[in-house]
Amino acid sequence: MIWDTADTTFAENLAAARAYYAQADTLAAPRHATALDKPVGQWLTNLRRPGGLGKDPERAARRAEQLAAIDPDWNPGQLGWTVDWQRHWAGLAALLAGGAGLEEIVPGVTHHGDDIGRWLTRQARDWTGLNPEQQHRLGEMGVKPAARPQKTATRANAKAGAAKGSDAFTRGVAALQQYIAREEKHVVGRGHVEELPDGTTVKLGVFLSNQKNRRDRLTDDQLAQLTNLGYHWAVA
Rank of each mutant, 00 (worst) to 15 (best):
A156H: 06
E195T: 15
P197W: 02
L208T: 02
A158C: 00
Q150C: 11
G139D: 02
L208M: 05
P197V: 04
L223W: 00
K144Q: 15
D167W: 02
P145Y: 05
Q211C: 01
A153Y: 01
T154K: 08
L176W: 12
R148Q: 08
M141Q: 12
L176D: 04
R217C: 05
D216C: 02
A162V: 06
R190T: 12
G172I: 11
D167A: 11
K151E: 11
G161K: 06
T219K: 11
A156E: 03
V188Y: 03
K203S: 14
V193G: 13
G142Q: 07
F207H: 07
R148V: 08
R182I: 01
E194Y: 01
G165S: 02
L226I: 12
V187S: 15
L204G: 12
A162D: 09
Q222D: 04
V202K: 08
G189F: 02
V173P: 06
Q225V: 01
V193Y: 13
E140P: 03
A158M: 09
P145Q: 13
Q178R: 15
G189W: 02
S209M: 01
K185E: 10
L196W: 12
K212Y: 15
G139Y: 04
T152V: 10
L226G: 07
E184Q: 15
F207S: 05
N157F: 02
A160Y: 03
T219G: 06
V193D: 14
S209T: 09
R171Q: 14
R171W: 08
V187A: 14
Q211I: 00
G199P: 11
